[in-house]
Nucleic acid binder design. Structure first.
Length: 427
RNA sequence: GGAAGGGUGGAUGAGUGGUUUAAAUCGCACGCCUGGAAAGCGUGUUCAGGUUUUAUGGCCUGACGCGGGUUCGAAUCCCGCCCCUUCCGCCA
């Protein structure tokens, strides 16, 4: 949620900024509803004040044993007026916050302006793309030779799920373990185990609700309560600080978790239907940082470095792009995507997304810290994949294949695979 | 799932319809005292919002788990829900 005071004081700037990310701000609606809110609120508070003082008078009169019927009569009218105004005020305020919840975050000044991914800017390209003297297979063809079985997963659950067996399943586990170990042992994150089902308050806090409910899998807890499968562990990790006032000494908070993620991919029919690129269920190791406002952009660079370290260790070629204003997610002020090289597609594909949400989520979460002046100030929240496990495995299969369809296990993963160096194909 | 008890400012905890402006204690901050400290004494110490002010601030509204209701007036009474504790049942 963006700061309503910004809308009151710098409306035009906000409108212009939002336009760069394709959001059309309803100026007239806002001004209308805001002035209505102001009028009703002032009037409501006046009436409440009068009611309170008259009610107090009644109390005093009665305690003295005097007759209060005249005052009672007077306050009866005021009281019903007050009720009416209170409900009017509620209505207007609900309208206003509902609108505010729909508004995406403002892009940071360093974000390239553009309407879609075509305006993304490549920051750097790392690693050497191998050349292959044989026709490369994609990960589905390789996978089928070493334990990837979409026929079975389709039978069990339908499309966009996968089932792995044997060394491949172990490789998948090894990747997650390795990433988690890197973040906890070398990057200073605290490992977390989190719920995979979360309530709607949590999703409202991180911005998936109310606007993107269609992308979530929902379960029913009871007649009047639903729980949602997490689309990313950003949700539980970031919500750890909801409704908290954190002491300055405890910042930054750096959390990581390896969890499955569940997405209905409602708006992506026909995209990446083959293979493991776009699934309803996938594993991801997530990094989350909670920082002081002045530290958040330093933290963003740091997190990018942490994700890059993983790819460097795995010896996978990648590039880093800064997302343009129109390509960023709802809550982000600035986002870096890391894209890994996939030989079968002859292009880089997203494997990580690292965002600074500034105070956007913190405002929804009521996540604050006590600054050195003793004032409560909203924290900044950042999240990033470090990395998507399934897509990392895809990249390893494709980049490390040989002409016999064997997959060479990256050196850093071998200790997680009992020293195994190659997964041999059944070809 | 069943039964009982509970949820009040940073902590403990009092408060069963009206001077509650949420007591008291602890903690914390500042001041006095002191060579310095402790003790003691004094003062202060929640959040959100509105409005006004150059500003410190002032005035006002709301918040006692959440949401409704009754009432001129609700922390207090009524209804629904959530969470916690203990016991029972089930279960890994």
């Amino acid at each position: 949620m963006i700061d309503i005071n910004l809308l009151r004081t710098h409306l035009q700037d906000v409108v212009t900024s939002l336009k760069t990310r394709g959001f059309v701000f309803d100026n007239q609606f806002f001004l209308e509803i805001e002035s209505k809110r102001k009028n009703i609120q002032i009037k409501t508070q006046e009436v409440q004040q009068e009611r309170n003082s008259l009610s107090k008078e009644i109390g005093i009169l009665k305690s003295k044993g005097e007759d209060a019927s005249q005052t009672l009569e007077k306050v009866a009218q005021i009281s019903s007026l007050s009720k009416q105004l209170e409900s009017d005020l509620n209505e207007v305020q609900e309208l206003l916050t509902n609108y505010l919840l729909q508004i995406p975050n403002l892009p940071h000044s360093s974000v390239p302006v553009g309407s879609d991914e075509k305006s993304n800017v490549i920051v750097k390209t790392e690693g050497k793309i191998k050349s292959y003297d044989f026709p490369v297979m994609d990960h589905v063809d390789i996978g089928e030779l070493i334990g990837l079985d979409f026929e079975v997963s389709t039978k069990i659950s339908g499309s966009r799920f996968s089932l792995m067996k044997g060394d491949l399943a172990r490789l998948h586990r090894a990747i997650g373990q390795f990433m988690l170990d890197m973040h906890t042992e070398n990057h200073g994150y605290t490992e977390c185990y989190t719920p995979y089902l979360v309530n709607d308050q949590s999703l409202l806090g991180t911005g998936q609700l109310p606007k993107f409910g269609d992308d979530l899998f929902m379960t029913k807890k009871s007649d009047n309560e639903n729980l949602y499968l997490i689309p990313t562990s950003e949700v539980p990790l970031t919500n750890t600080v909801r409704d908290l006032i954190i002491s300055e000494d405890d910042l930054p908070i750096k959390l990581t978790a390896h969890t499955p993620c569940f997405r209905s991919e409602a708006g992506s029919y026909g995209k990446d239907t083959r293979g493991m690129i776009r699934q309803h269920q996938f594993d991801k190791v997530e990094m989350v940082q909670i920082t002081k406002p002045e530290d958040s952009y330093k933290a963003l660079e740091e997190m990018l470095g942490h994700a890059e370290n993983i790819l460097n260790e795995l010896e996978l070629p990648y590039q880093v792009v800064t997302l343009s204003s129109g390509d960023m997610g709802f809550g982000a002020a600035k986002t870096y995507d890391i894209e890994v090289w996939l030989p079968s597609q002859n292009q880089y594909r997203e494997i990580s997304s690292i965002s600074n949400c500034e105070s956007f989520q913190a405002r929804r979460l009521k996540a604050r810290y006590k600054n050195h002046d003793g004032k409560n100030e909203l924290v900044h929240t950042l999240n990033g994949s470090g990395l998507a496990v399934g897509r990392t495995m895809v990249a390893i299969l494709e980049n490390n294949q040989d002409k016999n369809g064997n997959v060479h296990i990256p050196r850093v993963l071998q200790k997680y695979m009992a020293g195994k160096e190659i997964i041999y194909s059944k070809k």
